[in-house]
Amino acid sequence: MPAEPVPPVAESSARPRDFVQSLERGLAIIRVFSAERPSLTVTEIAESTGLTRAASRRFLLTLVELGYVATDGRYYELTPRVLELGYAFLSGLSFPEVALPRLERLVGDVGEASEAAILDGSEIVYVVRVPGPALMTISVNIGARMPAHATAMGRVLLAGLDDAQLDEQLAGIELQPIQPRTIVDRALLREEIMRIRQQGWALVDQELEEGLVAIAVPVRDRSGRVTAAINLSTHVGRRSAKELLEILPDLQRTAAEIEGDLAVSTASSNRRMRI
């Protein structure tokens, strides 16, 4: 994904009196680098930021001294130390706060609604909701609960349990025929959940609501334990179950990004506790 262009540094007259323009310029230089442009010369950085070559060079050498930038004398690139700038922010975020921007981007890319949920007994609890362009009749406000056995996220979360936990959960679930397609046979449901555990995703086609189809994947912590699930949901009038499967890679990529953000958050928190 191309990096967003870095806006030119504004003139000091356009800023409040207490604004520190030198800090703005240093951050503008850091933002110039991207996956597409990992290594840049002073001239390229000056052109991208609107700064003079002399000013760009001074800021770059300061960043080199601080350990945020490395140079071979001609080309400059960021060092891993810049990750520290995001650690403090990520370490204070909860799962919903980490997941929300990733799901917003996903919805923007694929044009379908997305949610995140956690398991609470035999139900899922929605903790993030990003609506898509299609109107859904089902209520999925934050905090809403749905039966785990009839939802894609619920089945993914059930698949993340160990065998003993899963059997205990299935024994206590009241399998109501919510829709004609809803699985209400305990043995068939367990078979479906084991298949989901093997393939790593779940697809539910009109088992919770007529016309509603959803696909879900797990979100794991650093130990590999399933802690949450995210989905894409739509109406069969927009995409069939087969068509929804075509955007499964986008959903899986988003789950991996969320897991990466959460790993950074956990590592930062653990490091702070050791200090």
Rank of each mutant, 00 (worst) to 15 (best):
V213N: 05
P218C: 06
R186P: 02
E168K: 13
Q199F: 02
A216L: 03
R239M: 14
A228N: 05
D205S: 12
L189T: 01
Q169P: 00
E210M: 14
H235A: 11
P180E: 09
Q169T: 14
V217W: 07
G237A: 08
L170M: 12
Q169G: 00
H235P: 00
A228R: 06
R186K: 12
H235G: 05
A241W: 08
E209C: 01
R181Y: 08
S240H: 11
L203R: 09
V217F: 12
Q165W: 00
V217E: 06
R181K: 13
G211M: 09
S233M: 13
A214D: 08
D162T: 07
L161F: 02
D205P: 03
L161Y: 03
R222H: 12
M194R: 15
Q206R: 12
G172C: 02
D163N: 12
G172Y: 00
G200W: 01
G224T: 09
E174M: 06
D185F: 03
V213F: 12
S233V: 09
Q199T: 13
A164Q: 10
A229K: 07
T182S: 14
D162W: 01
V236H: 10
R239Y: 14
L203P: 02
D221Q: 09
V213S: 10
D185H: 07
R222P: 00
I215V: 15
Q199A: 13
I230C: 07
L189E: 03
R225Q: 14
L161V: 06
V213Q: 08
G200T: 07
Q199W: 01
D163Y: 01
L189P: 01
A214F: 01
R186F: 08
A187D: 11
R239I: 05
E191I: 02
A228P: 00
N231V: 04
V213G: 06
G200I: 03
L212N: 02
G200N: 04
H235W: 11
E192G: 01
A171V: 01
A202L: 02
L170W: 09
T227G: 04
R238C: 01
L232I: 15
Q169S: 14
L208W: 05
V236K: 11
L203F: 10
L232S: 04
R190I: 04
R186G: 04
L232K: 08
P177C: 11
V226H: 10
Q206T: 07
R238N: 12
R195I: 06
L208F: 12
E174R: 12
I173Y: 03
L189K: 02
I196R: 03
R190W: 02
L161N: 08
